[in-house]
Design a protein around this nucleic acid. Structure first.
Lengths: 246, 246
DNA sequence: TGTACATCAGTGAACGCGCGTTCACTGATGTAC
DNA sequence: TGTACATCAGTGAACGCGCGTTCACTGATGTAC
């Protein structure tokens, strides 16, 4: 019976996927604001009301695309992390590998990127379903830092006194096993990393930056340093520890 | 005759301003995608076709709003720069003063901020008119750094060899009087600064960061350091120069 | 294995909406002599 | 100063469009006995 019911369910899964694929295609072509159920249905050779068997409203389709986009960029980051460049060698280089992968995904999927890291879609409020997938890239960055911390490849950044309570709160939430100073440096670095990507994807670098790869690598590397990751093998930890440890 | 013709022109100026004000109001309420000529006209008690005496199309109205938004944030930055906090004291503190002013403008005008630093509006391509106003905040940052450089308050960041040609090109374009190493550090810092602001304005810090003021100040300060600005009075330049000068 | 019934994907027509833009017009404001 | 004319802001009706969503329906697929 599971195989027979499976037939109907498999069809359902396939059509759902086809709808999302076509929606993603239109998103890539025209942006989220122009995404229309009718156009998607038209392109699939269905009548527009048929889509309501799959998504109760346009907003639910949008939500699915948002979740998928977070999933795609999260998976990209995780895959890069599993690569030799993301899991061996100097910790700053691992960070940069992951950062570059995220950047390349963003450049390859600018509208999906805009959907999740650009201006919120007007009138649309992200439901609970998105908050899990939204954190995957952040978790990868935390993982990188944790690895460095455990293998003595991290110089814990100093933590100003006034920031301590917030740092401890964030650390308790995000990474209880890491020193608060690291978390307080990591969160801004995370935002700044996406600042570099957004400026490039959204065109702010037009007529300003040409060698964007190089400049991004430099920016990403500096961010890695700012969270305390070390360039060399673990044994050279003392190089920077003097000035960076509290 | 200039006073008589002036009457008609003054009326024109006033109505144009009223249209932009109302459009800005609707932008703030619903976002750029929902901005509609008809709604603006309705709210002003005009018929929608009357707006075509003032703006040849909806896109032209949008462009005017974009130019105004760049103008507003640029003016905010320039005003902060002219403040005691922006023009005296340690150079890192001046930078932070300007950065905080920009952030506050963004938080007070999230939709206008999204219009210029968020996802590009679909189907809309920014015309030439926007590129001048778009650079005002950047020019303020360059001015801050130039001041520090001239008063010996700047430790020129090291410049990796592969980045040199691009750094020199950017320096020639943006600030021929500054060392390329500074410009190569300033451009990413500029992007990263807006990364911090965007993550806050666009809601990425929801459920993650609470003490956003503090974290922003810390991030902005670190960025100031990353472009070479010094914390102390000019005489302590040697503190950091050893590790930071090429 | 065969039949009666339930489920559910997809249809087609319709509702009501708001939009950007055009166009011929009216009437007030300004200009030239 | 007065008059004939030009300019131009604003009107009102209309065009054509695409949208999200609802609803009663058909017919194929699956289920229970």
């Amino acid at each position: 019976m599971s195989t027979i019911r499976g037939a109907r369910e498999r069809a359902r899964t396939e059509v759902t996927a086809a709808i999302k694929d076509e929606a993603r295609r239109q998103l890539a072509a025209d942006g989220a604001a122009k995404l229309s159920l009718r156009a998607v249905a038209r392109e699939l050779g269905m009548v527009s009301s048929a889509l309501y068997r799959y998504f109760p409203s346009r907003d639910d389709l949008l939500t699915a695309l948002i979740v998928d986009a977070y999933g795609a960029v999260g998976e990209t980051a995780e895959a890069a992390r599993a690569t030799p460049g993301g899991s061996t060698g100097p910790h700053t280089a691992r960070w940069t590998t992951v950062a570059c992968a995220v950047r390349e995904w963003a450049l390859a999927h600018p509208h999906e990127y805009a959907l999740i890291y650009g201006s919120p879609v007007p009138g649309y409020t992200a439901p609970q379903d998105t908050i899990g997938p939204a954190s995957r890239v952040g978790l990868v960055l935390i993982g990188l830092v944790r690895d460095a911390f455990l293998s003595d490849g991290l110089a814990v950044p100093p933590l100003a006194g006034e920031l301590r309570p917030e740092a401890e709160r964030m650390a308790a939430d995000l990474a209880p096993d890491l020193p608060p100073g690291v978390v307080a440096a990591l969160v801004p670095a995370w935002a700044q990393l996406f600042g570099l990507i957004s400026f490039e994807v959204f065109g702010q670098f037009n007529r300003v930056v040409e060698a964007r790869d190089l400049l991004f690598r430099r920016g990403a590397h500096d961010l890695a340093r700012s969270v305390g990751l070390l360039d060399g093998p673990a044994t050279t930890t003392t190089d920077r520890a003097g000035s960076a440890r509290r």
